[in-house]
Structures are given as structure tokens and as C-alpha cells.
Computed example of a mutant assay.
Amino acid sequence: MSTSTSPLFAPFKLGSIELANRLIMAPLTRNRAGPGRVPTDLAIEYYRQRASAGLIITEASQISPMGQGYLDTPGIYSDAQIDAWKRVTAAVHAEGGKIFLQLWHVGRISHTSLLPDGAAPVAPSALTAKSKTFTTEGFVDVSSPRAMTLDDIRSTIADYAQAARNAITAGFDGVEVHAANGYLIDQFLRDSSNQRSDEYGGSIENRTRFLAEVTDAVVAAVGAERVGVRLSPVAPFNDVADSQPQALFERAVERIAAHPLAYVHVIEGATGGDRDIDPSFDFAALRAKFSGAWMVNNGYDHAMAESRLAAGAADLFCFGRLFISNPDLVRRLREGRALNPLDAATLYGGGAKGYTDYPFLPD
């Protein structure tokens, strides 16, 4: 079997670590955490199996109990969670892999049944999203949020920093700040979800302030070379939109580029959907604002990644569902081998089926 010698499969220096290749396992919510929002033994095996990725970015993990929005998602705020993640990172490192943890606060994309004492979700403004979340009752409408106070904002920024420190304690190589897909930071960015009249709302400068301050705090906690940030400039996921997305996200990238981050991770088009949902949006203009590693995501296959790498359009390429069904995806792409089909019915919740039982190529 021929093996590709493409630079896609060559080592890449990311911050202070060396990746074995440029193929990244995207963050993928699987809803399989155990009691206490703790990763289970199955999660250890799941991530270990996929350690040949240049970098694994974990499933989104809430930074606090108020950051949770879906049933059985893991956290990074308790000692039990840190201890469980230590076993995950040790397993990935034993296989020669690298792994970042994605830091998550869902904001208004939550339900009172998932939050402490049945609390209302928090958001930049008290605007209910036209969206659903996953609870013990299945998919239900999200609950109405309350607007965050300035004290809420300050304490949440501190939660991001502490969660980043916890991740490093748990053995992660770094963290990714989840500022995409209509969750809390993205809610602050967009004028459809942020109608504040204080220093966190109104102008683009004000609406990018929360992102900038979270990034500042996480960088101060663990170092810029251990931090990536994820953005989704035109994705309408979870009922967000903006009247000036180009200007907004160019300024957002400028503000986080004040730090020599490990990478910026951009979802091109609609999350998990149409790449050309806004054909007028200029992603190259965003990249021009950041001198570090540029990571891209959404519908990539081998040929498309090769083409974009050859054109100099990006440095790192995320694969999501292909990594779910192909734990040895790097080898399959490098050798031009067939791919396992995805069992979509087992994506969210459940046990080993559709999680750790996808076959590897024979040796």
C-alpha cells in the first residue's frame, strides 16, 4: 500500500510542542460523562485510540456548574474531574499523542434542570434563544436566561482562568477557549444576542471585550503558547447572528492576536453544514490579522486539506465525524485506505457502541 509523503503528515511545531502531523481531532460532544460530570474509563479508551492525531481537542468541558448546557458533559472544575482527566491525558501521552482541553460555558444554551438549584441560565442579555438542549427528557427548548451582572462577568472570567490551570494540572498540553457556536462568548460577540448598554455591549469594541478579557485571563494563567481560541464567524448555530460579521470578527481576531497564541481555530461556514452560507465573508482577511498557526474546520476531507495546505490557506486541519468512526484516521488517509461509515444514532449518549468499538485497520 502506497503511503503519502505529503506535508500534511509531517511534524508541525505548535507553540512549545511538536505535533506528529497536521491532522487535528476536532472537539466533539459525546454526552458520556459519568456522575459528577466526570470522564469515564470509556473516555480514556476513546481518546487513547485516537492519539495518532497531530492534536486531540477534547469535547467541550464546562468551566463551572453554571457553564453546563447538556446532559452528561464533562467538567474541569472539581478535583474528581481533574483526577479523571489525568488518566485521559496519561493514556494519550503514552501513545505519543498531544491533547488540549476545550473550555466551555454555554451561557443561555441551557436548561434549569441542568443547573445548580434549578437556576436560570446566564447570558449577556435576557433573550431566550430559539434553540434546544439535551436533558433527561430528551431534546427540549432552552430555558429563559437572566442578564449577567458585572460581578457575574468578572467571576466567569476568573472561572475560565481557573479551569485553564486545572487543565494543566490534569496533564493537558494546552487549552482551547470555545468562543464559537452560539455559546457564552459568542453570545457576547453578536448584536443579535448582546443588547447590553454597558462596556460589554453596543459597539464592536465593547462586544469583543469579554472575549479579549477571557483570553487575557487564560493566557495569564497558563501561557499564550498553551492557548488556542475557536471562532465561528458566520455560523448561525444556536440562534446567533450579527449585522456586521466581517468587521466584528476581524476586530475579534486582532484583539486575541495581542498574544502569541498557539493557534486560532476557525469554523468556515455553518457549523456542521453549508460552507458557503455567507459567500461574501472573507476568511483570508481574518487570517491576515494573526501571525500564528491557523486551524480550519468544517467538512474537510483529505483532498480538500491537501489543496488548502498547498495554497497556504491554513496550517492545521480539523476532522470531526471522520475521527469518530476512524480511530486510525491518520493512517487511513496517509495510505489511501477505505473509511469506516459513521453510526449517527450513537453520537450522543450511550456506552461503548459507536464510541470505542469502531475497527482499526489490521496491522
Score class of each variant (00 low, 15 high):
S6C: 05
L8C: 01
K13M: 12
M25E: 07
A33T: 12
G34K: 08
P35G: 04
G36W: 02
G36L: 12
A43K: 05
I44V: 15
E45A: 10
Y46D: 08
Y46R: 07
Y47D: 06
Y47R: 09
A91V: 03
V106Y: 01
G107Y: 00
S110P: 06
A119H: 10
V122N: 02
A129D: 06
F134M: 10
D152A: 13
R165P: 03
I168R: 02
F172A: 07
D173G: 04
D173P: 08
V175S: 03
E176R: 05
N181K: 02
G182C: 06
L184Y: 14
I185S: 05
R190D: 13
G202P: 09
A212T: 13
V219Y: 11
A221R: 04
G223C: 01
R226L: 10
L231M: 05
Q246S: 09
L248S: 14
F249K: 08
A252L: 08
P260F: 00
Y263L: 12
H265L: 12
H265A: 07
V266N: 02
G273K: 15
M304I: 06
A305W: 03
A305T: 10
A305S: 14
L309H: 09
C318P: 08
D328T: 15
R331S: 11
R337E: 14
P341A: 12
L342N: 09
D343C: 13
T346C: 13
T346S: 15
G354W: 03
D357R: 00
